[in-house]
Every structure is written in structure tokens, then in C-alpha cells.
């Protein structure tokens, strides 16, 4: 949701397919493919110096630190959300329906029925 909204705010043509993986290109986000590839390696626990060099070439050392921090932050947040049974927010159920279908989110074991609240 916030990817789409931030893209709209920047008047950029963001393609949400990029969320599905680095093979989907940049998705309208600067260095998007490099960033998603880095997120995949972080998740797999296989980041090496080559990955870091590729990322610093694209977004600088500060970008590497911030990218690592964002990946780490969402490794935290998914455990908080899934560990506590956090349901979708009432106001996002309908607007995110198409996105959830496109990305296969409704098929996930962590899907929780969203009740208005």
C-alpha cells in the first residue's frame, strides 16, 4: 500500500510486480531490481561482499546501511504482526483486494480475516 501511495505522491509509475521479485525489473523505482535482489539475499541469509558492492554502486554506502536497516526492520515487523495475530486494518481491506490477489497474499497461511475496527 505505502509503495503505491509513495509512488503516487512522487508522480512515478510504480509497478507493484517488482514486489514479487528481482526478476520483475525496477518496477519504476530507482535501482529497484538491485534493491529487491538485496532484500532476497538478506532474507536467505546469503549476502556477500559482491551483493554489498553491487548495492553501494547503485545507492552508495549510506544506501546500503539504510537498505539493511529497512530489511531488518521488516524482519522484525512481520514477526510482530504474525506473532500477535494482527489483522488487516479495516480501511485497507477493500483498497488492497486487487493487490492481495495479484501478489497471492490471500493464499498465505498468515492470512487473517480482517474485521472492521
Amino acid at each position: 500500500m505505502l509503495l503505491g501511495l509513495s509512488g503516487a505522491a512522487a508522480e512515478a509509475d510504480v509497478e507493484l510486480d517488482a514486489v514479487s521479485g528481482s526478476g520483475h525489473g525496477d518496477g519504476g523505482v530507482a535501482s529497484g531490481a538491485v534493491l529487491t535482489a538485496f532484500a532476497e539475499r538478506v532474507h536467505a541469509g546469503t549476502v556477500d561482499d559482491g551483493d554489498r558492492s553491487m548495492l553501494t554502486d547503485a545507492v552508495g554506502e549510506g544506501g546500503l546501511i539504510d537498505a539493511a536497516a529497512v530489511c531488518a526492520n521488516f524482519a522484525m515487523m512481520v514477526r510482530i504482526a504474525d506473532g500477535t495475530g494482527t489483522p488487516l486494518d479495516g480501511g485497507t481491506v477493500e483498497p488492497s483486494a486487487a493487490l492481495r490477489t495479484d501478489l497471492g497474499l490471500d493464499e498465505l497461511a498468515s492470512r487473517r480475516v480482517a474485521e472492521p475496527n
Binding site: V29, L35, T36, E40, V78, S110
Partner: peptide, 13 residues
């Protein structure tokens, strides 16, 4: 983009 990709990799609904 990093946030969304990481969340999906973790299969977070």
C-alpha cells in the same frame, strides 16, 4: 519496495 519485498518473502499477510 524493500519493506514490501521483505514482508512478502516472510509470507506476511
Amino acid at each position: 519496495l524493500l519493506a514490501a519485498r521483505t514482508s512478502l518473502l516472510n509470507e506476511c499477510f
